[in-house]
Nucleic acid binder design. Structure first.
Lengths: 221, 221
DNA sequence: GCACCTACGATTGTCAACAATCCGCGTATC
DNA sequence: GATACGCGGATTGTTGACAATCGTAGGTGC
């Protein structure tokens, strides 16, 4: 029943935006690189019209930086941006966690098991990309469980920026095991309804990520 | 020195988006109304290309809802949306307030005096629109003082949605005096560095707004 | 009289061409 | 030899027209 509604309900601009967003997330387009319109349009098989619409959307999301008559560039994130992304993530995910605690905790815990399993598998396999994917999915699922469309949308954007930060130096293997434990402890605190513990662990989790990223960053201030 | 740099650095799509956003905010376009592209383009004196780019941006911000081959419609906000907007606002402004408390409190207090003055004047004059403007500016200034670009951007979007909620029934005069006092108390708590008090008052302020809006809403569930 | 089908009008989605602007390089001049 | 000027190439910004799609009104058959 869930497969019978969409034929091509999504607009071309939206599809193009998703594609480019994924490419930026994966690090295919390095920060600072210029995105030529004709080149991209030809490569995606669309005209410049829909492509420009998609670009405007990405500019609104903060992924691209537009200079008039100069071109579109992939936004480059400095140390301040890393701190700011995680500041915003902390704010949003804290609110989401509180909502989950006040709502259906069990369903949320169930939803978190899937990314946790993927994270464990990726940790065992030493798959850095899979690990980042699972991390992404974990936090997306947490916020989605809050039932708030706006928190969800904000998190989606912030997670993309997080991936941009990570993609820059994802050659350095993250401490997979430690990361998995951190997330499992978040789930445990949520499952047990330990509000203060969950919020503390969430804040600590974010702080850890910031220090990890800044430590591996080229221009660490 | 600050007036000599920008000639037309902003793209046309951005200008158009700002214009339409303001129109939606003011209630010029009632929720649910369809926005014809050719009509809008002619009225704004631009072609459909830039206008469509601006529309995509507004869709990304959640102000418009796009249906393929049907048209663009102004998003209509129900009771759930009101609650969700204020849930997100509480999360974001709470984080901003904490940042301000940890940073330059005095500068923030100074910045808040301007919208507070405007609010007092609007309250005396019985100017509902001016009151809403001042309210908007107060919260924008608070978040801007946090120094976080992302919190600031999120707030900007959420405040527009807030105005959309208010515009629907702004014929009902809000309790201006009470509103002014609430904001002054927020400033007081911030000025005195009373963290817990400020957060409590902020949360209460948001709750009050939700109940006020839902009470005056047509389809209050 | 009711239901179905068809043609029309209007709107959106897409495209290719035109105009404006900016960067880099070569040349002339001091 | 260094600097200022101007030109060429490339890219973006904008425009208008064409094609696809949807809602609706009218007509026809049962």
């Amino acid at each position: 029943m869930s497969e019978l509604e969409p034929v091509s309900r999504r607009s071309t601009a939206e599809i193009v935006a998703d594609r480019i967003r994924a490419a930026i997330m994966r690090g295919t387009f390095a920060p600072g690189t210029q995105l030529g319109e004709v080149d991209l349009a030809n490569r995606l098989g669309v005209s410049r019209g829909p492509l420009r619409e998609a670009m405007q959307r990405l500019v609104a999301e903060g992924l691209l930086r537009s200079e008039r008559h100069r071109g579109l560039f992939v936004r480059e994130l400095g140390p301040d941006d890393v701190r700011d992304v995680y500041l915003a993530r902390t704010a949003v995910e804290r609110a989401a966690a509180l909502q989950v605690l006040a709502g259906d905790r069990d369903a949320a815990v169930v939803a978190l098991e899937i990314p946790l399993g993927a994270m464990a598998a990726a940790a065992d396999a030493g798959d850095a990309v899979g690990l980042a994917d699972a991390d992404h999915d974990f936090h997306a699922a947490l916020v989605a469980a809050s039932g708030s469309p706006r928190l969800r949308r904000m998190t989606e954007g912030l997670l993309v920026e997080t991936r941009m930060c990570l993609a820059a130096f994802q050659q350095t293997a993250p401490p997979a095991r430690e990361l998995l434990v951190e997330h499992e402890r978040l789930r445990d605190a949520l499952r047990d309804g330990r509000t203060e513990l969950l919020l503390d662990r969430l804040a600590a989790h974010m702080d850890d990520a910031v220090t990890r990223i800044l430590a591996a960053m080229p221009g660490a201030a």
